[in-house]
Amino acid sequence: NITNLCPFDEVFNATRFASVYAWNRKRISNCVADYSVLYNFAPFFAFKCYGVSPTKLNDLCFTNVYADSFVIRGNEVSQIAPGQTGNIADYNYKLPDDFTGCVIAWNSNKLDSKVGGNYNYLYRLFRKSNLKPFERDISTEIYQAGNKPCNGVAGFNCYFPLRSYGFRPTYGVGHQPYRVVVLSFELLHAPATVCGPKKST
């Protein structure tokens, strides 16, 4: 009989979020998941679920829940969905086509923008091939755009693969920082350890 609540607040209220190319993952297990707390949290810009209804989450049990978190621009949030393409979905964070879970995003301009620009948040701009679902690539190898080998030196046709967002408070909404948490639900042939409040007695 599990009684402790799942530590969703640790994920959602973290002081610093990860850059999207180096997205953070927390495994959540052996706890009671009260999703209504999240669902009623006012400032969400997006709360979209795939393969599961957000209002039914509290009735369900899962083997594991993974909480992935990172920061992207407002106009990139739409790429955090199954079957998407674009710089983020291709080179930074890719969801599987059969994704079961929820994508939760909110504007973090007050936290993550600075006058003069916040350059701490990076994304991958160049990559030889697209990421596989949930693949994480933190390499900083110089990207070779031409035929000539770069030998690890940036220059003509040789690019550092990461780019900084440089968030400023005055940017338009599409270019403002958004914090994103992706909850993915794993249902294995194993005992369920993460259940909603109704199922955990």
Score class of each variant (00 low, 15 high):
K198F: 12
P7S: 13
A42K: 13
V52K: 05
S164C: 05
F12P: 03
G155V: 03
A22N: 13
L162Y: 04
S139M: 08
W23I: 02
T85N: 11
C61G: 08
V115D: 10
F160P: 10
L188A: 15
G116A: 12
E76G: 05
R124H: 00
I104F: 15
A105D: 00
A89D: 00
D137L: 03
A46H: 15
C102A: 03
V173M: 13
L38V: 12
A154I: 09
E10P: 05
K56P: 06
D9V: 13
L183P: 00
L188K: 15
Y21F: 12
R136W: 06
P54F: 15
T201G: 14
N58S: 12
R168N: 02
R136S: 07
G166T: 06
V180M: 09
N4E: 14
S200W: 14
L60I: 11
S29R: 11
A14H: 08
Y178W: 10
S78V: 09
N40S: 13
C150V: 01
T55F: 10
R163D: 07
F167M: 00
V194I: 11
A67W: 07
H175N: 05
K132Y: 09
L57S: 06
N109T: 03
R25K: 03
K26N: 08
S19V: 01
S19M: 04
C49P: 00
L187C: 14
V77R: 09
R163L: 15
L187V: 12
V153S: 15
P43I: 05
T201I: 14
L188N: 15
N13K: 09
A154K: 12
N109M: 06
K128C: 07
Y119W: 04
Y178A: 07
L111C: 08
D9C: 07
K110R: 12
G196K: 11
V11P: 03
K148E: 12
V181Q: 01
T15V: 09
S184H: 15
P43M: 06
F156N: 06
P7Q: 12
L162N: 04
N92P: 01
V115Q: 12
C150T: 01
T201W: 14
N92S: 04
A145L: 04
I80D: 00
G74I: 01
S184D: 06
L38C: 05
Y159K: 00
G86N: 03
R16T: 15
R73E: 07
W23S: 02
L187Y: 10
C61L: 07
N30D: 13
E10D: 10
A14K: 10
S53H: 12
I2T: 14
F167Y: 06
V181A: 05
K132I: 10
F47T: 09
V194P: 13
F185M: 10
C49N: 01
C158Y: 03
A14R: 09
D137H: 04
A67Q: 04
F12G: 04
L60C: 08
G166R: 04
G196W: 10
Y119I: 06
S19T: 05
T63E: 14
F17G: 04
L5N: 14
P161T: 04
L57W: 10
Q79N: 05
G51F: 05
P177G: 02
A145H: 01
F126G: 03
L187D: 14
P54I: 15
D9G: 12
G146D: 05
G116K: 10
L95R: 03
D137W: 04
T140G: 11
I88A: 04
E10M: 08
L95H: 00
G83C: 09
G86S: 03
V77C: 05
D68N: 03
I88T: 05
C61M: 09
N87K: 15
G172F: 01
I28E: 01
D98E: 10
F17H: 04
F8N: 04
A14N: 09
C61H: 11
L188S: 15
S139F: 06
Y35T: 09
I72D: 00
P54W: 14
P149L: 11
Y50S: 02
N64R: 11
L122P: 00
P191W: 09
V65D: 00
D68M: 04
Y178H: 13
F45Q: 15
F99I: 04
V194A: 12
C61T: 11
T193N: 13
N4Q: 14
T100M: 13
K110A: 10
S139L: 07
Y123S: 15
E141H: 12
